[in-house]
């Protein structure tokens, strides 16, 4: 008795495009937000160059980034923090300190990264450093002003931690 050879039944699979479109839109939104966030934190400027010395790579931690917006002739247009620009004046520095105090209240071990152009005069950078100290003092609760100066090292230079 000859057995009838049965042919395997193949399931017809249709590619459903809707989940893929969903994923692509999510990616689009992600990239848009991430690039805007990156722009607000990293203003294009020429950072101070230092020889390989005490600098180290930034560790992953909760941080605020203050950008001292450079102006011509070593001046500053203002201070950028979390997408808000504070004026380079006594009032603006005070508001910057209050914004930092809010951050210190949320996280007493907050690290503040300071980015400034290499040609910016010290008189415009020092208020931002002072704002970090003032903000920690306003926040209270044992908040420690931890300031990290963002610098640039020449390509190929080795570093050791501080």
């Amino acid at each position: 008795m000859a057995r009838r050879k049965s042919r395997p039944a193949y399931a017809q699979i249709e590619m459903n495009l809707i989940p893929m479109i969903d994923v692509m839109f999510f990616l689009l939104v992600f990239f848009t937000l991430a690039s805007r966030l990156s722009e607000s934190e990293h203003v294009d400027m020429s950072l101070a160059r230092v020889s390989a010395g005490a600098s180290s790579r930034a560790v992953e931690e909760t941080r605020y980034i203050i950008n001292v917006l450079p102006d011509d002739n070593g001046g500053a247009l203002g201070y950028l923090l979390n997408g808000t620009t504070y004026a380079a004046s006594a009032e603006g520095v005070g508001q910057l300190a209050l914004a930092l105090a809010d951050g210190y209240r949320l996280n007493p071990t907050l690290a503040v990264h300071l980015r400034a152009d290499r040609s910016t005069q010290y008189m415009w950078v020092e208020p931002a450093m002072r704002a970090a100290t003032t903000g920690a003092r306003i926040a209270g609760g044992g908040a420690l002003p931890r300031l990290n100066l963002v610098v640039e090292i020449p390509s190929g230079s080795g570093t050791h931690g501080s």
Binding site: V23, M24, L27, F31, A34, S38, H42, L47, V50, A54, S55, S56, R57, A58, H113, M129, A132, T133, A136, R137, P145, R146, L147, N148, L149, V150, V151, E152, I153, P154, S155, T159, S162
Partner: peptide, 29 residues
């Protein structure tokens, strides 16, 4: 999708490749 992610992370990490930080001690009040 994987290539797009790869390109994105390559571009964003390359922008800050030479950036380092100096830890500064801040005076108290």
């Amino acid at each position: 999708v994987v290539f797009m992610l790869l390109v994105y992370f390559l571009l964003t990490s390359g922008a800050a490749a030479n950036e380092r930080v100096l830890r500064a001690e801040m005076p108290d009040s």
